[in-house]
Each structure stands twice: as structure tokens, then as C-alpha cells.
């Protein structure tokens, strides 16, 4: 357990450094460092601090938020497919952010954009739970997720189309497929508070999520209130996902893949999978973001394209297992 976290921590740290090292103008850490220490606005120092660093930081923040929220949602709903992207919670978060940003309200207060993302994510999560309940089957959850995704995606396109800004309509890809390219430290400042705040309730839920592994009746017998757990997870996931998506757009499948990879390593304990899933999510997003910068595509692909390429097969595998066993897939 501690070993898993330590190994993942080292992996994330290595990817963080690689992410900072990768870019169109190469890597000159020593020159940049000496520039930074002397306080000069030299090009390399500027690039490292204002472009590479925020991008790597956002990779960690957004990946951790999605991984943690995914693991917590799966623990609450006892369903390995309950993930911000698949369930449509990310899409409603993006819709909230899009409404605020293109409406011109993002400048009103610094936190208007992430808060709009949080409100969007919370609405999505509440809608999901209202329709699905806490013990929906895999198929039900997927259906509701598909409906929420379609609705939020269409509404996002509508909002972008209605914007008088000629570029707005073409930014649908960024919102529905996600990107952390060309973000700055100001974006880090937008995402970080919400994500950090969201982690608290999610981590508070860890013991309750363990108890829920044996069903709600057992959990209640163990002194765990499933309604309180629901509240903690909705609040935490909405804050974390809303804050992340408001800056990056929908980056799908991270919350599916990270806990999926982690569970066997922590003996399938939902509570124990939270922190490693956050680390694995960070590693995944960093990895995907590095890969898309190294791919010889003319223009950089959206981040969500990379994570979908990796994540869709996982979804397939889960569906295949569910079909064969006729029950909830675990792995």
C-alpha cells in the first residue's frame, strides 16, 4: 500500500520532469535555471515557468482530480464504470464552464469559471443519482451517462454556436475532448483551489466506501450513513471535476482507467484505492499529454483523444466481462 503510493509518486515525479523537458524548443534546464536565479526574463526561463511548468502542473492536478473522483464514485455506486467522463458529470461541468466563459462572465471574479464548472458537475452528479440511484446496474449507468453526455454536449455546441465570437464555434473540440496546451500559471490558480478542496470530502469518505463494499445494509450496520457518503462524494467529485474541467475541458476515461489499474494492487479496497488512483490519474494525464506532443501530427491532438484511445479498450474489456459473467465486472 505504502509501496504502491511511493512507486506511483516517483513515477509521477519522473513524468513531471519529462513533461517539462518536452517541447518544441527543446530543454535547456541549466541555462534556464541560471536565468531564473538571476531574475532575468530570459526566453528559456520564461518558457519553463510560464508554459512548461503550468502544463505539467495542470496534468498532475487534472489527472489527480479525475482519478480520485472516479475511484470515489465507483466506491459509492459500487460500479467500476462510474466515472466522471462516462457518466456525463464532466460534460455537464464543461457546459457550466462554457456558459460562463463565452457569456463573458469569467472575468467577473477570478473563481467564476471554476465555480461554474463545479455547479455544472454537481448538477450532472445529482441528476445521475436521481435517475440511477445508488445501486444501478452497469447498463443503466451507461445509458444515463450516454444521455447526459449527449445532452450536455449538444447544449455546449449550442452555446458556442450562439456566441458572437467567430472562434467560439470551433472550440467545441477543446471542451469535449479536453486540452491543457498553452495554459498558464493563472489556469493553475483557477483549478487548484477547487480540486484541493474537493479532495477533502473524497478522502473523508474512504472508510465509508470500504464499508459500502459489503452493501448498504452492512455499511449502515457499521455506522456508515450512505446518504452522508453520497453527499461527501457528490460534493468532492463536483469540486474536483468541476475545477479541473473548467480549465481543461472533458478529458475522458482517466477516472475509469486509473482506479481500474489500481484496484488489484490494493486488494480491491475502495478506500485504499483513492490516493493511488489520484496518483495514477496524474501519471496517465501526464503520459498522454507527453505522447501527444511527441506524435508527428501537424497540429497537437486534444488530450481527450489520447485518453480515449487508451481508455476505450478498458471500457470494452469491462463490457465484455460483464456480458460473459452476467454480473458486475470487477477487474
Amino acid at each position: 500500500m505504502r509501496g504502491v503510493n511511493a512507486a506511483l509518486g516517483v513515477f509521477v515525479a519522473v513524468l513531471f520532469v519529462v513533461s517539462i523537458a518536452v517541447g518544441p524548443t527543446g530543454f535547456a534546464p541549466l541555462g534556464a535555471l541560471s536565468d531564473m536565479l538571476s531574475g532575468r526574463d530570459a526566453p528559456m526561463a520564461l518558457i519553463l515557468v510560464e508554459l512548461r511548468l503550468p502544463r505539467a502542473l495542470l496534468g498532475v492536478i487534472i489527472g489527480a482530480a479525475l482519478g480520485l473522483a472516479g475511484a470515489a464514485m465507483q466506491g459509492l455506486l459500487r460500479n467500476p464504470l462510474a466515472e466522471p467522463g462516462v457518466t456525463g458529470v464532466s460534460a455537464t461541468a464543461a457546459l457550466g464552464a462554457v456558459l460562463t466563459f463565452y457569456g463573458g462572465y469569467a472575468g467577473a471574479t477570478p473563481l467564476a469559471l471554476p465555480l461554474a464548472g463545479v455547479v455544472g458537475a454537481a448538477s450532472g452528479a445529482i441528476l445521475l443519482l436521481a435517475i440511477a440511484g445508488r445501486d444501478a446496474t452497469v447498463a443503466t449507468l451507461i445509458l444515463i451517462g450516454a444521455a447526459l453526455n449527449a445532452l450536455a454536449g449538444a447544449a455546449t455546441a449550442l452555446v458556442l454556436g450562439l456566441s458572437p465570437n467567430p472562434y467560439a464555434f470551433y472550440e467545441i473540440g477543446t471542451w469535449l475532448m479536453g486540452s491543457i496546451a498553452d495554459r498558464g500559471l493563472d489556469h493553475v490558480a483557477l483549478a487548484l483551489p477547487c480540486v484541493a478542496l474537493g479532495c477533502l470530502p473524497l478522502l473523508l469518505a474512504r472508510r465509508g466506501l470500504d464499508a459500502l463494499a459489503l452493501g448498504e445494509e452492512t455499511a449502515r450496520g457499521l455506522g456508515v450513513d450512505p446518504r452522508r457518503m453520497t453527499l461527501l462524494v457528490i460534493a468532492g467529485a463536483a469540486l474536483a471535476v468541476g475545477g479541473a474541467v473548467a480549465v481543461s475541458g472533458v478529458v475522458g476515461f482517466v477516472g475509469l482507467m486509473a482506479p481500474h489499474a489500481i484496484r488489484p494492487l490494493v486488494r480491491y479496497r475502495p478506500g485504499a484505492s483513492l490516493v493511488p488512483s489520484a496518483l495514477a490519474g496524474a501519471a496517465l494525464v501526464l503520459l498522454a499529454d507527453i505522447a501527444l506532443r511527441l506524435l508527428p501530427t501537424g497540429r497537437e491532438l486534444p488530450l481527450g483523444v489520447m485518453t480515449a484511445l487508451l481508455g476505450a479498450p478498458v471500457l470494452w474489456q469491462l463490457a465484455w466481462r460483464a456480458r460473459r459473467s452476467g454480473q458486475t465486472p470487477w477487474l
Partner: peptide
């Protein structure tokens, strides 16, 4: 191009460009 923002135009006011 508009009184409403876009991500596309936001890139021109990136802190890095502002500082450089």
C-alpha cells in the same frame, strides 16, 4: 473580433507572451 471571449484569442494574452 468580438466583445465575447474565446479560447483562441485568450492565447494572445498568455502571461508568457505578456512578459516576453
Amino acid at each position: 473580433t468580438s466583445d465575447r471571449p474565446s479560447l483562441a484569442e485568450q492565447m494572445m494574452t498568455h502571461r508568457a507572451a505578456r512578459r516576453a
